[in-house]
Amino acid sequence: MTGAPGGADRSWRSADPSDPSAARNVPALLLTLRKAEFTGSIVVASTPGGTIHLERGLITAIETPGAPAVGTLLLRSGRIAEADWTAAVADLPSGAHGDLGAVLVARGTIGAAELETVCASALFDAAFALVLSRPGGWQVAEADAPARIALRPGIEPRRLFEETARRVSLLTRLGSPPGALARVRIRPAGQAGAATAGIPARYRELLAAATGRRTARDLGFALGRGVFAVMLDLVRMDARHLLHREPAPAAPGGPAIGLRTPPAGPPPGVTGPLPRRIPGRRAPVGADGTPERRAERTGPSAQAAPPVPTESTWQTEKTEKSAP
């Protein structure tokens, strides 16, 4: 899932299916763990990153700051009242790591079918959010606690890859690649107020929540909607000239290149007069008039500098750790 947006990265095909450490990316790892019927989690280190929960190799939940979780979708959308949610959490038989979904259903707070639908929606949306940023490494934890609300029995990895690729491809075909759309901030267009009478209610909610400081992710959290669903509506609203996209703000800290302040005093390690150069000589001479010779570089410092990592090296960089 954290391959190239749109599922273009197929390097998992060359991975050894019997060895998780041979996986070149998270999709390859998920396929390997599915064959091993692994139960545990994968912690993906990126921005925003997240945790992928698995049971017998099936993906049951994905938790990431990049997309609203099941609880956010239920509470912000009004499907469940705050008091009912708090009461269900208090009834957890096994503390914070109990099956909160089962408790909500047992209390009659939500139906089993509706909860399953929301769990699946949150899982697919979280996978979509993970591919919008450049991935880093990952860690595998066999003894990690399961998600409090999970989709069971879970989703096949290939099914998740296909749906994520479909969502990225759809937005791209509509002229709004999701990676770029995720970075812009939304505000209503000047003429949006006069055109709100005939638009769907969800469009009006987006216009009311779009303050010019919120991204699609922010709007999803505010309204209890998935990030993909919000992006799709924003693209359609943009086609109707209902909103304006604010450019992404510049990174804090100013430009990467700035004026250098010269240090005070002589450079470190200089204790005597500097060498002087005599016309006609290539090498400088010291204070006694004898030519100075450059010191030969030996040891590790004389070796060639390691190559600078590039954006394409992420496919083979990982910090996978598996419990014995």
Rank of each mutant, 00 (worst) to 15 (best):
P266C: 06
V168D: 00
G57Q: 02
D99R: 03
H53V: 02
C119N: 06
G198D: 12
L160P: 01
P93Y: 12
G137S: 14
R294W: 10
E246T: 13
L74Y: 02
R173F: 10
R204S: 05
D233I: 04
R148Q: 14
G190C: 04
G136C: 05
L151I: 02
G101A: 09
A28R: 01
A4I: 11
D288L: 14
A197C: 03
G50R: 01
A143D: 12
V227W: 01
S169N: 13
P307M: 08
V184Q: 04
G111S: 07
S46A: 14
A127P: 01
P275Q: 04
R13E: 14
A264S: 15
R152T: 06
A67S: 10
T211S: 13
R107A: 08
H241K: 12
R148K: 12
V235G: 01
G111F: 05
A23W: 00
R225K: 10
L123C: 05
G299Q: 06
E296Q: 14
R282E: 15
R13T: 10
T261S: 11
R173P: 01
A122R: 00
A250T: 09
R260Q: 15
L181T: 01
W138Y: 07
A208G: 05
R277D: 07
A305M: 14
R24E: 07
G258Q: 15
V270L: 15
A106G: 14
R107C: 04
G6E: 06
A4V: 09
R10A: 08
P273T: 15
T316M: 11
P157Y: 05
F128H: 07
R159L: 13
E162L: 09
P273Y: 09
T60L: 04
A120W: 05
L274N: 09
G198A: 13
G154F: 02
F124V: 03
F38G: 03
M231W: 08
S301E: 14
L33G: 03
D19F: 10
V89C: 08
I42K: 00
G98Q: 01
E114P: 02
V230S: 02
D233C: 10
I59P: 00
S94V: 11
V285Q: 07
C119Q: 13
T319I: 06
A126Y: 01
A120E: 09
S169R: 10
R214Y: 06
L181E: 00
A305F: 11
T47H: 08
V43N: 06
G190K: 10
G226N: 00
P17D: 03
R107Y: 03
I149E: 00
